[in-house]
Structures are given as C-alpha cells and as structure tokens.
Amino acid sequence: MNDTIETLLNHRSIRKFKDKSLSQKQIKTIIEAAQMASTSSYIQAYSIIGIKDATKKERLAELAGNQNYVAKNGHFFVFCADLYRHKLAGELEHIDVKQSIESTEKFLVSVIDASLAAQNAVIAAESMDLGICYIGGLRNEIEKVGQLLNLPPYVIPLFGLAVGVPENASNKKPRLPLEHVYHEDTYNKDKQEYLAQLEAFNETVSAYYELRTGGKRNDRWTEQIANMLAVPKRMQMKAYIESTGLKKT
C-alpha cells in the first residue's frame, strides 16, 4: 500500500485544532493541488476564498450554526461554484453565454468542479499531516454568507473547509460496506439484500458509537439518517441559487 492510499483510508474529520496558522507555503500548496483536480471541459467553474480575518471567521462560525472550529483553525477556505468569470469571458469575446451559464447543466458542472477541487485540497492537506473538516453549515445562512464574502452574480458559497494541525486524533468513522455502494454493470435492486446490508451496517455503527461514547450512545445509521431527513432543511436554497443567476433553466 502506498502513502497516497494510506492517506485516503485514514481520513477522519477533525474538529479541534492547535492554535497554529498555516504558512503561506502550505496554503499555496493546498490551492495548487486543488487547481490540478479534473475539471469539465477545462471550464474551471469554481473559486476558493481564504479567510484570515478573525472577525470574519467568527461571523462565519456563527452563521454556520456556532461551530467553533470554523473560527479556530489553521486556515479556513470557502469553496464556491463560480460562473461569473465565464460571463466575463463571453463579454470579452462578444459572445452571448447567458443561456448556457444559467442552465442546470452548468450549475451541476460548477458544483462538481468545486467538489473535485476541494477533495484534492483535502488530500494535499492530510498528506502534510494536517487535519480537515468540511463545513456544510455555511448553507444555513447562505445569503448572509454571500453578502459577507461580497460575492458577485453567478457565484454560490457551497461549503467551507477548516484546515489545521489536529489537537488530537479522532476515531475513524465506519463507512457503508463496499458491496452496498459498488454495483457492477447494473444497479442491484434486490430490496431484501439491500435491507440486510443496511441492518449489518446498523450493527457496526451502533457498536462504533457505543465504544466512542462509553455506552452513552448507540443509535443505528438508518435511525440517524431517517430522523435527519424527517425535518427538511435549508429550503431557501432553490430561491437563493436562482437569485444569483444560476440554474434558471
């Protein structure tokens, strides 16, 4: 097994970092690694905003649901879907690109591009013995986040990424069994087999929580997910996305 595979297989989210800022060299390396991610048709439809200002980080932590590690980390990145530069590219070439960049297809491209870049950034950071935590909570107050970051039209803040030196190592959380996620040639729609796999995973997750919390928690994965999905969240997302000019058709 090589170092890259070991880094990938040892991933875990870190929510407590030492009080040590990333160096400019580390930040540059992470961004350069992110930029080398695959991008659809060379479109590069994303931007990354690094947050150094302590007051702004505190505000983002508040908007993300008072998550302390948004403010207390080595560096905080915000990954954005970004088709603003493509609007400017059209203007520069005197070509009307409005219908294209406002399409659902290009919205998906921008989200996928940003996600691929972010995962490259994560692998780069973890390879340097740094810890990371994705922050989807920025979408709790996505309009306020957009205003705080002074985002132009056709740009959406998708998620944050807290990076830093881990204070301590967290436990690696179990994942769904490979055979439940990986299908060959066709989707396996055998419901009974699917349910059996979920029940087996429930036992794994329940044991994980029980060990991690000293018996204070033993919820199953399907229980956790069903309860989460029972309460719709961030239902303002469609209106906000369309207000930026994206995903109109």
Rank of each mutant, 00 (worst) to 15 (best):
T104G: 01
I30Q: 08
A121I: 11
L108V: 07
I132K: 08
T55L: 12
L60I: 10
N66F: 14
Y69A: 00
L151S: 06
S115Q: 11
E143G: 00
G164K: 05
K106V: 08
L130N: 13
P157D: 01
A124L: 05
S115L: 11
A121L: 11
T29L: 09
F159D: 00
I95T: 13
F77N: 00
K28I: 02
P157R: 02
R139A: 13
F159Q: 02
V97W: 13
F107C: 03
C80Y: 06
N150P: 00
A54I: 10
T55E: 15
H75V: 06
Q35K: 13
L92C: 06
G160K: 03
F77V: 02
F107G: 02
Y69V: 00
I132Y: 13
Q35P: 00
V70A: 01
N73H: 04
I142E: 13
A117T: 05
H75C: 06
K56D: 01
K57W: 11
I51N: 04
A33L: 06
A54P: 09
L92S: 09
G74M: 04
N140Q: 04
K106D: 08
A54Y: 09
P152T: 11
K87R: 13
A64Y: 10
K52I: 01
Q119T: 07
A45C: 01
L88C: 01
T104H: 14
Q67K: 11
A45F: 02
P157E: 03
L148V: 05
Y42M: 11
I132V: 15
F77E: 04
H94W: 08
E58I: 08
Y134L: 12
C133L: 07
R139L: 07
S41V: 12
N73Q: 03
F76S: 00
Q99L: 12
A71M: 01
L151D: 05
T104F: 15
K144T: 02
L161S: 03
G131K: 06
D82A: 11
F107I: 01
I43D: 03
F79K: 00
E102W: 12
K144P: 00
K98E: 15
E126V: 12
K106M: 15
R59C: 03
S110G: 09
T55K: 15
A45H: 02
T39N: 13
I156V: 14
E126H: 10
L161Q: 02
A121V: 12
D53R: 04
G65F: 10
K87Q: 11
Q67D: 05
G160M: 08
V145H: 11
G50F: 10
G160R: 03
K72Q: 14
G136H: 10
E32S: 07
C133F: 10
I123Y: 09
Q147W: 01
I49E: 06
E91N: 11
A61M: 04
L63I: 04
Y69T: 00
A124Y: 09
I31R: 03
L63F: 14
P153K: 07
Y69W: 15
S110K: 10
L138F: 15
V155S: 09
L130Q: 09
L108E: 10
E93S: 14
S38R: 02
T39P: 02
D82C: 08
V78P: 00
G160V: 05
G65D: 02
F159L: 08
P153W: 09
Y46V: 01
D53N: 15
L116T: 13
A121N: 09
I51G: 04
E126Q: 15
Y84Q: 01
